[in-house]
Simulated assay, not measured.
Amino acid sequence: MKTRILFAAVLLFNSLAYASDSLKADSLKPRFIAASPSKNVRNVNGILFKYYDEEDHFKPKKVNGLGMGFNFLGIFLPPLMLVNLQLPGNDDYVMVPREKMNTINGLQLSLINMEPTVTNGLEINVSSNINTYAVTNGVSVSPFFNLHHEMKGVSAAPLANIGHKCRGLQIGLYNKCEDFRGIQIGGWNENGKRKLPLINWNFKKQKTN
């Protein structure tokens, strides 16, 4: 009797382990079309439809193709953000490890991005990146403003481009980046070295406190 019970327990354990491995393998299998939030999707070779994955349950995804964000909050934020357009201070946000961020290799097209994301390619956001850690390597364009913690490439928006660490070119009415190397073109430009109208620049490594 004891042998039968032990044998049944072993079979049950093996079945659960196999099911767990199958789910894990299925989550790693690339999808052509997927959605976020999702517990069972990690890789997308195609299109990812994003809404907003809460931070406590966020599952990072790798997208080779197009990430589309449909959080309609992005439509209403631009006029509100213009009243106090700034990134949170250094004590107000946490740097997110790359392995815990979405990675989009291609195009990010969103009303608003609220998921920690590394975009390698082209980023077009109506309300940019709000309340999240955002990194863009490539080109970022917005009809209003761009907000990034890290930007390498070109950031262009009619009203403002704001970031913490920027390498490349900022073009807009107001440009600001604390740790900046490159050229800023706009009505008013600020970086860690100087503040100037029309055009500003810095090509040297800045001293950190």
Rank of each mutant, 00 (worst) to 15 (best):
L82H: 15
V10G: 03
M151N: 07
Q184T: 01
L173A: 11
G121N: 02
A35V: 15
N200D: 08
S128Y: 06
P116Q: 00
D21T: 10
K204P: 12
G106R: 00
G163D: 03
S36M: 09
K29S: 06
R31V: 01
K62C: 10
A35E: 15
I33P: 08
N209V: 11
A19V: 04
L169K: 03
V118S: 08
N84K: 14
V83Y: 15
Q184N: 01
G89W: 07
N200E: 04
D91A: 10
G168Y: 04
V63E: 06
V94L: 14
L122D: 01
I5P: 04
Q206L: 14
S36W: 08
R194T: 15
S15A: 14
V154I: 08
F32E: 09
N105H: 04
W188Y: 13
K100V: 04
A35G: 15
R181P: 07
H148K: 09
Q108K: 13
D21L: 08
L73S: 15
T132V: 05
T3V: 15
S140K: 05
L80I: 15
A8E: 06
N202E: 06
K59E: 03
T136W: 06
G153Y: 05
Y93T: 01
K193V: 14
L11P: 08
N113P: 07
K152T: 11
R194V: 12
Y18P: 09
